[in-house]
């Protein structure tokens, strides 16, 4: 079973609010003290892919649309067990939105060719959009489902548990298919020092726009459907009143009294 996982590097989502500002060119600037990490839901996608490969054979390939030809992130990402990786980098894709990103990734995936399943994160933790996966599926004409917490292969089909309001739905999809993954049941395994060392030997293929046959006109049409007018940092006006007391018990009682005097309880 050949599985492709899309993976993206993002600024650590746990970074403090003060680490973000908007630069003069209206782009988001993240403080250089914030490290880059694999987007958390992509970790779940990778873990799901590894478990399926371990159970059914085949290989796991990672695909990333990057901003620089630096492939060290993909070598690191392969340490947990992926077999190979592809990095698409081209000026043509710079500043691309979700649709442009999905276009580039779908072209790369089509070029990789033989796959049974594509897994993506349910949303990247920088864009928080949850768009790219579904649009890759549409571009490739694949059946898809979003926010999946568990995958099982049954014969030439798969069963996927989709998280819905108040419960889950068990879906059956024919292969090949695309699923976007959530975190509850797939926590990415650790990589040992040995794994990290041997991952540097694993192959990363770097492709340009022309390598994957990207068409400038098509890309332009996709990338210009939405306009990003402006970005800003939200300001919180909340003033917290910290309730004290001679002991924790007294503070607790004072808190209840404060809620009463504000007519909250």
């Amino acid at each position: 079973m050949n599985i492709i996982a899309t993976v993206k590097q993002v600024p650590d989502p746990e970074a403090p609010a003060g680490a973000f500002r908007i630069g003069p060119d209206d782009r988001v600037m993240v403080s250089p003290t914030v490290s880059s990490v694999l987007s958390p839901y992509d970790e779940s996608a990778v873990e799901a892919a590894l478990q399926l490969r371990d159970a059914h054979g085949g290989k796991v390939s990672l695909v990333c649309l990057g901003t620089e030809p630096d492939d060290s992130f993909l070598h690191e990402a392969m340490a947990t067990g992926a077999d190979e990786a592809y990095l698409v980098v081209d000026d043509m894709f710079q500043n691309g939105d979700a649709f442009a990103t999905a276009y580039a990734l779908s072209k790369a995936i089509a070029k990789i060719g033989e796959y049974d399943l594509i897994v993506c994160g349910r949303q990247a933790s920088d864009t928080d959009a949850g768009v790219v996966g579904s649009v890759i599926a549409e571009s490739l004409g694949l059946p898809s489902a979003t926010v999946i917490r568990k995958i099982e292969v049954v014969g030439d089909k798969l069963n996927a548990e989709r998280v819905i309001e108040d419960g889950i739905e068990v879906l059956e999809l024919p292969l090949p298919a695309l699923l976007t993954m959530t975190s509850e049941l797939y926590t990415l395994r650790y990589a040992s020092v040995m794994d990290i060392m041997s991952a540097s030997e694993k192959p990363v293929t770097i492709w340009s726009a022309s390598d994957i046959g990207a068409d400038a006109v098509e890309l332009d049409d996709l990338a210009n459907r939405s306009i990003l007018r402006k970005q800003f940092i939200p300001v919180s006006q909340t003033q917290c009143e910290v309730i004290g007391g001679d002991s924790a018990q007294e503070a607790a009682a004072n808190l209840a009294q404060a809620l009463r005097s504000r007519k909250v309880i």
Binding site: I243, Q249, A252, A253, L255, A258
Partner: peptide, 25 residues
């Protein structure tokens, strides 16, 4: 950071705060 986003707060171990808070409520 929760203290920058909450309206009211108590600094303390919840195990010491919650029982009395519950009682007074």
């Amino acid at each position: 950071p929760i203290f920058e986003r909450a309206h009211l707060g108590v600094v303390g171990d919840y195990k010491n705060v919650l029982p009395q808070f519950h009682e007074t409520c």
